[in-house]
Structure formats: C-alpha cells, structure tokens
Design a protein around this nucleic acid. Structure first.
Length: 296
DNA sequence: AAGGCGTGGTC
DNA sequence: TGACCAAGCCT
C-alpha cells in the first residue's frame, strides 16, 4: 500500500483513512467533474442516496452542462428532470443558483466559501464540499458521514448531535490537514469511510482502518446517551400530499384544474393547505380560474 | 433553533 | 412491517 501524503501536525487518523480510501473508494462520476458538475451533484445528494442520484445527475450533465444552460431552461423543465429525487425546492434553488452564477459570476461557479454561501440552496456543507471537491482547497467538510466518523473515532459517541455544533467545528478544524491537497483528499476519504464502513445502523468495525484507535470501539461501542427525537411520520403528512400534487403537475402537459388536482388527495382541507404551501414556495403557480402549473 | 421539507431502500 | 436513514437548507 502506498503511504498517504502527510503534513506536519496531521492527526494520525488521517493517513490511515486516506490509505483506506485510495484502495476502496467508489468510482463516482462526479469525482473529477468540473465545478458545475460537482455543484449539481451536491444539490442532488442533499438527503438523497447516491444510487438514486446517479441516473438523474447523468441526465442533467447532458441537458445542462453549464450554469447558463440551466439558467436558460424553465423552472418547470428543471422540476420535471428532477423527477422523484425528492425535496423539489432543491431543483428550484439550483436553477436560481445557476441564474445567479450566470449573472453575477460570468457563468463560473465561484471559488470562495463566502460567494458560494450566498447562492440559494448552498449552506455550510455544500460550500465546503465545492471548495474541496471542485477546487481542491482546504475546507472543513462536515456532512453526516464525516460527523459520524469523528463522533465515534474522536469523541467516543455513537452518533453526532442533531445539528452541527461549535464544538464539532472547533474539534474538526484542529485535526484537519492544513495543506489544500491533503485536506481535499482527507475530506473525500473520511466522508467515504462514513458512507461505506462507519455507517449509522451497522458499522463494519472489523474492516475499519480506525478500529485500533477508535474511541467509540475502545469504550465498547456504547449506545447513545439520549434517544434522538423521531422523524415525523410521512404517511398522511402534508409532505406526502405535496409530493402527490407535484407528481401530477410534472406529468401534465400544461395547466391542471383544481378538480384535476383533487385526484392527489381525498381530504380537501389538507390538499388545499399543501397546494398553498407549494405556491408559497414557488414550486407551483396559480393562474386564473383556479388552474395550476409548474413555474416557467 | 427545532422542525418542515420527498422519496425509497433496508432490516 | 414500520421505523430508520440518506453528501442539508432554510426559517
């Protein structure tokens, strides 16, 4: 095995995880893609598994290979191409981001965290990910996978807190490699370890490169001290109704009447509430006489 | 600053 | 089977 590049002051877990990554990483198509391809992948991967993103990402790369290409398309086309990826507000925000990049950044995905964070739909994680994976720069990439690995290996906890904390940022910054090259490689490596080995439900500690040093393993893999709050039920929720309405509108050639949308959900009150929410979110447009469509 | 926001695979 | 979980963001 080739020794991983190492810089002075680097935490010892870094070369172990990087070496593991160089042998075990998945050949994901957005690795080494241009910054726009990386940005699109990051939007799609927000709360959506890799295997569901893959076909949609390829489709988007072909249809809209640049920010200006997407900006020239309609929001409706973006929402239809988004399909069933979920959280369609991401598709709308990605379209808005493409417009902002075209108008304010000469069509080039910006290469500073501050400018990236100013784009709609780009938060702390996505900005850091684009810096690392598109531009090879040092940034503290704290996604759910990285946070879980660090919570276990460093803190000895079963899972990280519900939301990113200042303590996590400080702790991560202290151990993060200082050079751009090693930092970007480490970011991809620790994220992949969390995705493939140090998983939430059934971590494979037997094959983990951190097995001998992991604080959580050393402590006997203790369970979480406090049970996290459960995710809201989906069946019967407004989210389910919103999804049904969006599916009808994606499949429609043009406008749909309110009575046509009644097929989405039997309860009129809940249906109307969901529809009003979609309109407020800019995902649906109401035209005259109670007809609806996706936004142009 | 918790909770809303889609969808589907997994166990 | 139903509950958990998934490269978060926004308010």
């Amino acid at each position: 095995m080739t020794p991983a590049p190492e810089s002075a002051g680097t935490a010892p877990i870094v070369p172990a995880v990087v070496d593991w990554f160089l042998e075990n990483q998945r050949p994901l198509p957005w690795r080494g893609a241009d910054p726009w391809g990386v940005l699109v992948s990051e939007f799609m991967l927000q709360q959506t598994p890799v295997h569901r993103v893959l076909p949609v990402w390829h489709d988007w790369q072909e249809r809209w290979p640049t920010p200006s290409a997407l900006a020239d398309a309609s929001v409706a086309d973006a929402l239809r191409a988004w399909g069933r990826l979920g959280y369609p507000r991401r598709a709308r925000r990605l379209h808005e981001a493409a417009t902002a990049i075209t108008e304010n950044h000469e069509g080039v995905v910006p290469d500073s965290e501050e400018e990236l964070r100013a784009l709609p739909g780009v938060g702390e994680y996505t900005a850091a990910a684009v810096m690392a994976f598109a531009y090879g720069r040092r940034s503290i990439v704290l996604d759910t996978n990285v946070r879980r690995v660090l919570a276990r290996a460093v803190e000895g906890r079963a899972l990280p807190p519900a939301h990113v904390t200042t303590v996590e940022r400080t702790s991560a910054t202290a151990l993060w490699p200082t050079s751009d090259d090693v930092s970007a490689l480490w970011s991809a490596s620790v994220m992949e370890l969390g995705a493939l080995v140090c998983t939430a439900r059934s971590p494979e500690c037997d094959v983990c490169p951190l097995q001998s040093t992991c604080a959580w393993v050393r402590a006997g893999r203790p369970a979480l001290a406090h049970v996290p709050r459960r995710q809201a039920r989906f069946e019967g929720s407004d989210r389910q109704v919103r999804g049904r309405i969006m599916a009808l509108l994606r499949d429609a050639d043009s406008f749909l009447t309110a009575s046509a949308l009644a097929a989405a959900w039997p309860d009129a009150e809940q249906r109307d509430r969901a529809l009003a929410g979609l309109v407020a979110d800019g995902l649906v447009v109401r035209h005259g006489r109670g007809s609806y469509s996706l936004p142009e």
